[in-house]
Design a binder for these strands. Structure first.
Lengths: 234, 234
DNA sequence: CGGTTGGTTGACAGCTGTCAAGTCCTGTGG
DNA sequence: CCACAGGACTTGACAGCTGTCAACCAACCG
């Protein structure tokens, strides 16, 4: 797990996520204060860990580049994925109450992650109303994201919901909502949705047949949004 | 939907949830400030609505008595339950980002709910560090609660997880973790877990046979915690 | 007492998981 | 550039869990 000593005062100003991460609505001086909050930036290779389940809660993290997944392992040794994290998204706050992180987090691709000490963030958020608002907004957003796929849905509905949710998130980030690249394996998709790889694979085949979307490797191209929504049941 | 004009200055001081709701760690004067935040208290009969999906986000809510469920209805007319809310638990923050509540909330039994205008709460939280901390802690708690049951689990694992989670929450509230009363119907349990009533009913029968727990109507009595955890796979 | 709602139990079908084999992709090393 | 190895992904056969449909029982209430 690498890290870089950096000129923290410009960390946020030059970030690609400035329009939707924590800095939304901040003045230039407030932005500098926030940048100074960032205690370090983790540079992770694919498969490297940002944190381990049970580690004492100290920091929030924000994705500056790349993507991550969080997961736990149950007694049977099965991985259970909580969520995926993309550019500008926050993670770690589920550790506040228990005082330790409830999940392990690892990089899906080469990634850069900002580490923000929680205590400092609280202090500065109390002084900058816009930051406080945005902090809560991002947490709220995350809660909705993780409810987007319901346990009630059939396999087909879940998978459709999953892609619609991704599309929505990427769109928010200024990316193309119709075609995007994810570093998530079929296994991880299946796991996140509570399905098996085989089921996911079969459904992707069916989605392609029905001209809903094409998953070519890690590239997703949504061909028929309305139909996909219909299939998703939303 | 009824409401009571009230002496807001003492609202929090006499509440049964004072030790785990928002007031944790507050001085008496801070407590009064918080109490004054409460714009009204909703008194709901069973089945009455606190809010409807799509209503503009304005307030947080805290459960002062009773219990609630939040849910959406999909295009097929199927109810999809997001969560249940008990004494001292917060709800509504999922509306922050979208600017509207993403779910309908209705009372599972006769309940009393504190309404806390979001803007005011932010202002006061910025001034009272303990309140800010507790606010985030409660939100964090909720995020973990709703991840307690994984989509990966089998029906049996989900149901076991569900009761373990309830037990943990009630324990936190100073109630008996081994035997408790819930106002949740079998249908709502099934729905929350992504199962059918029939499956839940059958599993409850099996749990009883295996001496794990007895569900007599709405009363849950956990007989063998370790075994139940083993079944839950946690 | 009867009607209604909620809960339980049974029979059966179908979706999805399991197991297995085969194919594609990617990175590595010659 | 090619060959190869290993993993990721796809496809098929089959079984079993869970959903669906139906009937029945229990509790509650007018």
């Amino acid at each position: 797990m690498g890290s870089v000593a950096s000129q923290t005062n410009s960390l946020c100003q030059n970030c690609a996520a400035i329009r939707f991460c924590l800095p939304v609505g901040l003045s230039k001086s407030d932005l500098t204060s926030l940048g100074c909050m960032i205690s370090r930036r983790h540079q992770l290779q694919r498969g490297e860990y940002l944190l381990q389940r049970g580690a004492p809660f100290k920091n929030f993290f924000a994705v500056q580049q790349g993507s991550l997944k969080s997961y736990t392992v149950n007694t049977e040794g099965r991985e259970q994925i909580w969520g995926f994290y993309f550019l500008g998204e926050l993670l770690g706050f589920e550790g506040i109450d228990p005082g330790e992180y409830p999940y392990t987090v690892c990089a899906l691709e080469n990634s850069v992650i900002c580490e923000i000490p929680y205590g400092n963030l609280l202090n500065i958020a109390a002084e900058i109303p816009e930051l406080q608002k945005q902090l809560l907004k991002l947490i709220s957003q995350r809660c909705v994201v993780d409810h987007f796929v319901s346990r009630n849905n059939t396999a087909q509905q879940r998978l459709a919901c999953f892609f619609l949710g991704l599309s929505q998130r990427f769109n928010r980030h200024g990316l193309n909502p119709n075609e995007f690249h994810i570093s998530i394996s079929r296994q991880d998709i299946a796991n996140y949705l509570g399905l098996t790889v085989e089921t996911v694979s079969r459904l992707l085949g069916r989605f392609k047949e029905d001209a809903l979307l094409v998953a070519h490797g890690k590239t997703i191209k949504i061909d028929d949004f309305d139909q996909l929504k219909a299939v998703a049941g939303i």
